[in-house]
Design a protein around this nucleic acid. Sequence first.
DNA 1: CGCCAGGCTTCTA
DNA 2: TAGAAGCATGGC
Length: 278
Amino acid sequence: MQKTVNSTEKRYTFQVSDFDLEAILYCGQCFRWDRLPNGSFTGIAYGKSLRVSQQGDLLILTGADQNDFETVWRDYFDLGRDYGKLKAQLANDPVLKKAIGYAPGIRILRQEPWEALCSFIISQNNNIPRIRGIIARLCETFGEQIDGGYAFPSPGALCSLDESDLAPLRCGFRAKYILDAARQVATGAVDLDSLFKIPLADARETLTKIKGVGPKVADCTLLYGCGRLECFPIDVWIRKVLDCFYPDGFPVEYIAFGGIAQQYLFHYARCCPECGLK
DNA sequence: CGCCAGGCTTCTA
DNA sequence: TAGAAGCATGGC
């Protein structure tokens, strides 16, 4: 039986380098991509669903055309950035050199600010499989149904709910945090669009007005949702990395891209048994 | 049963 | 103001 291709389905391919799709989608920065039996991945971002696979240096997007690629996925996968050059600089540090060598294809995704905020509120004192489950139920319960699944629910879709409405999510004490975030964003008390450009200290102060948002969740929101690459979220793993490998502090010359360095270090510390962490 | 999970809030000294 | 306890849920 010959395999058939739906010729009406949109498809777009793009040449990539320094790019490892699986590592990017499963290094703990995003929670809405699922692996399919054929090795490709399916997910939704910016209200658009996508199937994506990688064959060597070719990225194959199914369900997306050139316009989708240029308006959403190019920036989502940070394809305009020269990671080769960036890694060459970061690798002057011996620990970063090993971390980069362990997973050289990691990139920082540009997710939606609201989704990043909400996702990392859910992440606190939680583990990644359960974070994924809660977010999936959040989208299925309150997100708009689109072709291929459910969009991430908007703040407006959540702001009038109460804690009992969120019971199906089984997100525990985080329910009140999600609702406070939705309300503050929906009313404009927190302006996510401003976070892209205002001074970092102001952005952090804005975000930490939300209940359940501390320094770590704020920095994750800014890094993964607003492209603030100088943000360096410190979770339990990165805390261990800093204590163990950088007792005199993280080198200042890398802080402009500290968030990217952080992602290599996070994945390395969490997944590489030989990383030498104590 | 206890311990832990990409933290944060609240309580206590 | 630093440090510990408490927090919902689920996997092990």
